[in-house]
């Protein structure tokens, strides 16, 4: 009886620490961001000026918000057909087969590869290919980052949606087969409508991952503080500008970076929250 009580208290304390840490993080982000919002108001979010020259300092987060959204959207667009076919392959066509379990563990393996390794591969393998194709003079840019991001989020998009696809009850598939449906018709009229919201949610969560990915993107995006002028132009994401510039930042610039961090936090939290709501509605 007594040990029960003690265990309960220990567990409670442990959870409380996590809660306090998270709250503390949000608190310090807000405190750190106050100066920049005081200086520029909401203009900080919508201005595309980024000028750290002393005396005429001007900071706007728009180039980075744009860079983050463009690379992430590009990533999800590239990732979607691959993740979709992979999850159909694992979750339906080759369900419970040896091939499916091998592929599924390969996909999970992709999730475990450190970001810096993707960055290196992108830098030494993908970037030269982009140059070779003449898409961009130095191979850096939004497009290159989008491809790397797409590969990085495939496991997140795939593993959740294949699980949801394989959860579609067998009796519904049988009902469709008994009406003379082909496999393809079963997939499109029974499996996908039933798994729809779960699949959408898994892409939203994958999108959330893409928003915050830092290292690989920082190595490939070209790090110019402007709104990207084309798909192959260079830019910076919210995460990459922080990673690039926090070392030599102080004063207002540091506050601007923290402000960007706060915005990134809000956006990813929002995206994850939306994804979770859809999953909850689904299950």
């Amino acid at each position: 009886m007594k040990s029960d009580k003690v265990t309960k208290q220990i567990l409670f304390a442990a959870s409380l620490i996590i809660l306090l840490t998270a709250a503390g993080m949000v608190f310090s982000l807000i405190m750190g961001a106050i100066p920049v919002f005081k200086e520029f108001g909401l203009g900080f979010v919508f201005s595309n000026e980024w000028d750290p020259t002393e005396g005429r300092e001007n900071y706007g987060a728009l180039p980075f918000i744009a860079g983050t959204l463009i690379t992430s959207i590009l990533a999800i667009v590239i990732c979607l057909p691959m993740a979709f076919s992979t999850s159909l392959f694992i979750g339906e066509y080759f369900r419970k087969s040896a091939v499916a379990s091998v592929i599924s563990s390969m996909v999970d393996l992709l999730a475990g590869v450190p970001s810096i390794v993707y960055g290196l591969w992108g830098f030494y393998t993908l970037r030269p290919i982009i140059m070779e194709l003449g898409l961009s003079p130095q191979g850096y840019g939004v497009f290159t980052s989008g491809i790397i991001l797409a590969i990085m989020i495939i496991p997140y998009a795939t593993s959740l949606s294949n699980e949801i696809i394989s959860m579609v009850p067998n009796e519904l598939k049988e009902a469709a087969y008994s009406l003379g449906a082909t496999r393809m018709e079963v997939v499109f009229t029974v499996i996908l409508p039933n798994a729809r919201s779960g699949i959408v949610a898994s892409y939203i969560l994958a999108f959330g991952r893409a928003l915050g990915e830092t290292m690989a993107v920082t190595m490939l995006i070209g790090n110019s503080n402007v709104v990207p002028d084309s798909l192959f132009g260079t830019g910076n994401t919210m995460a990459s500008v922080i990673a690039n510039q926090f070392g030599e930042a102080d004063g207002l610039k540091l506050s601007a970076l923290i402000g960007i961090g706060l915005l990134l936090f809000i956006i990813t939290a929002l995206v994850n929250w939306i994804g979770k709501i859809i999953i909850k509605k689904f299950s």
Partner: peptide, 25 residues
């Protein structure tokens, strides 16, 4: 064929369930 447990398609209306065979094909 009719199965052990009732298995109407949950994403379809009553009307669409009846006509499902035609739609599927």
């Amino acid at each position: 064929m009719v199965f052990q447990r009732p298995n109407p398609f949950p994403t379809m209306s009553i009307y669409d369930n009846v006509i499902a065979g035609y739609k599927l094909n």
